[in-house]
Design a protein around this nucleic acid. Structure first.
Lengths: 152, 152
DNA sequence: AAATCCAGTTCTAATTTAGAACCACTCGAC
DNA sequence: GTCGAGTGGTTCTAAATTAGAACTGGATTT
């Protein structure tokens, strides 16, 4: 049956997953962050079916995560570029990456690494901070429900 | 046909998505972070089919993201609790939440909010830092391929 | 102008999902 | 202690989604 939708959910996590929570979406977006911009580049890099990729890209454009721009090599083709909204997903990809690095590899397995181009050093692990600058963790947080815009 | 697997991928993002990248997984994990621990609580909260939930929970236990523990109310039932590995996904959920907050709501729509229990204030937006403490962004980063354990 | 590349679309078959029905065990009330 | 409800699933079927191959039409290369 049709997949349940969370487009109208009150929880931002659910809405986010409604937009990009399917099997391929974040992989495609990761490729975009890695500089792949052409349909065939992404298709070959992921080994995804062309129909799947076409439908995902169409949806990303509709959602404003990617946009079609003229090809950077001057040809008549177009390329997919991350919008501001799409670039906002960078920390989601980084968080997934850091979790994967820490929990999904055996010793000695090769992995790719995110580095600071200025120094060539790996980036620091993400941390969560409270409004007053204290580093905090899950147990020090709580989700408050149904907060309206006015209250923000 | 069968979904492609990235369990052996060299990219930690791909491995992470192989483990938790399907439609329901992060929603179930979000519920776990929200304190839901019983099968029926999660099932009713998400409106997920019981078979789906059972298969996802089974896999999370197998992956070491959740574990079965005796019910905290002293009954003969069991509960699902996040392991250390599972708690490591907190920042993934927070990153998704913050992206959703920033890009998926109209003005005036109600949303839930993550707050610091100490002060009741919303948490700060996540930021990425280089090893030397500079805050950096996507354009200042690059992915290096095939780095072996020894080199870390 | 022929051959090849690019960016898809269309088609079919296999896999996955939703939802309902069912089941055994536990609990709470009487 | 037993009856009804609740818990934590499993099994079944139908519908939706996905993979992969084949095809298409315009752009590019030779």
């Amino acid at each position: 049956m049709k997949r349940k939708s969370f487009r109208e959910a009150e929880c931002p996590v659910a809405r986010a997953l409604d937009a990009i929570g399917d099997w391929w979406s974040l992989l495609i977006i990761r490729d975009a962050f890695d500089g792949l911009r052409r349909f065939s580049e992404i298709q070959q890099n992921l080994g995804i079916a062309k129909g799947m990729l076409a439908s995902r890209l169409r949806e990303f454009v509709k959602l404003g995560i990617l946009e079609l721009v003229p090809a950077s090599d001057g040809s008549a083709y177009q390329e997919y570029a991350l919008t501001e909204k799409g670039r906002g997903l960078f920390l989601v990809v980084v968080a997934l990456r850091q979790w994967g690095e820490g929990h999904l590899y055996q010793k000695g397995e090769a992995r790719s690494l995110l580095v600071d181009t200025r120094t060539g050093q790996p980036v620091a692990p993400l941390r969560l901070y409270a409004a007053d600058g204290r580093a905090i963790d899950w147990p020090e947080t709580r989700v408050e429900s149904k907060v309206a815009e006015r209250a923000l």
